[in-house]
């Protein structure tokens, strides 16, 4: 057990380091001591302090929130579906949330809070349509869950297409959403974080509470039921927590894809399948990824500022290729994660 705890502590330290780096590095370099000073003793007259507290800190918090929720979602979904490609972005959850926000904002002129609720409903709808398409396609007996991922991709394509059609219908509002729709970690969305943070916290709380029985369910249904776990309710609670958490993250900064898919694969070799440790480790690793991704997106292509979501999509796509090749196209490969 000890090395696993050690890993957890190391990840925590790395998270702290990337948070500080995210706050310090930018168009204006701000020294470590100034960053700490801005956080501890905020001086309203200092420009550097203003930048750290009102621009970089909200952005970093959004990155942590999104990264943690997406990574946890990916961990749980990959475990429950026994599919190495499952994640909020590949199973239609992100696309559904995005579609509902766009449609709600365009047709019913929803305010910010209502958009958040629309995102939650959309996340559930997206996941449900992915499952029903997989069932409709009649390939659910496919042992390696290929159909599930394929229908997730198709559902996402359809939703993104419809969302784009709505965007085109109103060019004036298009510019508002164009950044958001590709996934953009930006301090202007801070008020959304202030509105929706409790949903993510609730999602973590639920998952933490059922971590033990959920681990048993992932290890095998027979084992779990013989240990006295109510499989149906544990699974439902877990899926609800994941879907709603991912939906709230999408409501804040748009769909961010890569984290949920990749982080579980990175964490698993070090931590194992037990969710008691895998959840916090996954959450922190996801947060680190988003913080660093945000930093790279802002700095790598100066003077252009890239959207974090686009960069994440690029890396995520490459990893997706690698996983498909490893799990589905290598002869004799096992479907197990």
């Amino acid at each position: 057990m000890r090395p696993r705890w050690l890993v957890l502590v190391l990840i925590g330290l790395a998270l702290l380091a990337s948070l500080l780096a995210n706050l310090a590095i930018g168009a204006v370099q701000i020294g470590w001591s100034d960053v700490l000073a801005a956080l501890v003793r905020f001086d309203p007259d200092s420009y550097d302090h203003f930048v750290v507290v009102y621009q970089r800190l909200p952005r970093a918090l959004i990155a942590i929130y999104t990264g943690a929720l997406m990574a946890v979602g990916g961990t749980v979904l990959q475990g429950l579906t026994r599919n190495p490609l499952a994640s909020p972005s590949t199973l239609g959850i992100n696309a559904g949330a995005m579609l509902f926000v766009i449609v709600g904002a365009y047709t019913f002129d929803l305010g910010l809070t209502a958009q958040g609720i629309a995102a939650l409903a959309g996340a559930v709808f997206g996941f449900a349509s992915c499952l029903s398409v997989a069932r409709l396609a009649g390939l659910s007996r496919d042992p390696r869950g290929l159909a599930l991922i394929l229908s997730g991709a198709l559902v996402s394509m359809l939703f993104v297409g419809i969302a784009n059609a709505f965007l085109l219908a109103d060019p004036a509002r298009r510019t508002d959403f164009l950044g958001w729709i590709t996934g953009n970690i930006n301090h202007v969305y801070a008020d959304r974080l202030a509105d929706f943070w409790w949903i993510g916290l609730l999602s973590f709380a639920i998952l933490g509470a059922i971590a033990r029985p959920l681990t048993l369910v992932m290890l095998g249904q027979e084992k779990a039921s013989s240990a006295g776990v109510n499989i149906t309710w544990v699974t439902r609670a877990a899926l609800a927590a994941v879907t709603l958490g991912a939906g709230s993250a999408v409501a804040i900064c748009g769909p961010i894809g890569f984290v949920g898919l990749v982080v579980p694969h990175i964490v698993r070799p070090f931590i194992g399948a037990g969710l008691g440790l895998a959840l916090p480790a996954g959450a922190m690793t996801g947060a680190i990824f988003c913080l660093i991704g945000d930093l790279v997106a802002r700095q790598a292509f100066t003077p252009y500022v890239l959207h974090t979501g686009v960069l994440m999509d690029l890396i995520g796509g490459i990893v997706f290729v690698a996983i498909v090749r490893r799990f589905y196209l290598t002869p004799g490969a096992r479907g197990e994660t």
Binding site: A153, G317, V324, Y328
Partner: peptide, 9 residues
Amino acid sequence: LMGIAVDTV
């Protein structure tokens, strides 16, 4: 699936 993955990239 591989085609779709390449597409994303």
